[in-house]
Amino acid sequence: MKSYVVRRSILDGFTFAFLIASLAVWIINPTDEQALNMRVNVALFAAAFILGTFVSHVLTKLKVTTLGESLFQPPYKKNKEAVAWYKTFSAWQLIVLLVGLMIVSIIKTKFSIYELLNEDGFNGAIRLFKGIGSPNFDILPKAILNIIETIFMAFLATALAIPFAFVLSFVSAKNVMTGKVGFSIYLAMRTLFNIMRSIEALVWAIIFSVWVGIGPFAGMLALMIHSIASLAKQYSEMVETVSEGPIEGVQSCGANKLQTIWYAIVPQVVLPYVSFTVYRWDINVRMATIIGLVGGGGIGTLLVQYQGQAMWPEVGTIIVVIAVVVWAMDQASAYIREALK
């Protein structure tokens, strides 16, 4: 089957199934027990999906352009006549879909203007802002000591990630890994990086805080794992865009694979590498703060301690310190990256 037909069927199938399922939930109003019965619900949704693809197919056969068809149809099938948008099926399908999504998400997030303007809650927020707005600078030395921990945590995580990411970036670049064996290694590495990156640093921090105990070491390891995957991906994308000329030139001199990488590829990627790495350190400082919240050490841990005791002036001090450091890192990394261009 043509791939655009598959894509159109999946998109249309999902939009129809979503609308059918939302309507069904609204009409039937299932109990919790019914809603948690996964087998039946998945079967029902699958049935709705199949029905949707069928409807999509029939409509396409009737020359009605569905949303999927209008998005994915190949250029030669495109209708040359301009039709006003409100006369097309696909436009209305999109509007109904968006309205449906909006309604369901408002219900799901328990969106409520009342809660936002409720007097109790509002007063609580004012108290909090007042506290934060009048920071208690007595704890400044402690906050600074902790943010230093955070900065070094981020630095070590970045520094330790560089050699791993450097080596892995060539192993996971399509233009280096040629041949059957090479391509399978490339695919395996790419998949591994995607898995590593799709697990948030926060989750890695939870894993490592069980492994090595709560504290900056766990936070550093979490950031390192995440940095390796992110840097290796960015690095390898750089490797894939190098120009072929120098590679051919060095190969024509009888260089082996390692010599070719070192002399033809590395000089072309070293500047972007440095730029990415500085940016990664910057990101890691920000992430390290968040990771501290789940016990990764540094300023985040301090923040969560004060927040737990509702000591808002102290929290205010910490927010100021974090803001200053993040702003400074951001500026510094921007300047360094600009200078490297």
């Binding site: 000329g245 024509s252 009888g254 002399y263 000089p267 072309q268 070293v270």
Partner: peptide, 20 residues
């Protein structure tokens, strides 16, 4: 390697390493 030692090549776009 032996082949490339005996057969050198130059290219339309020179193919030097620009930064070296």
């Amino acid at each position: 390697k032996w082949l490339r030692q005996n057969v050198g090549m130059i290219f339309q776009h020179f193919n030097l390493i620009p930064r070296h």
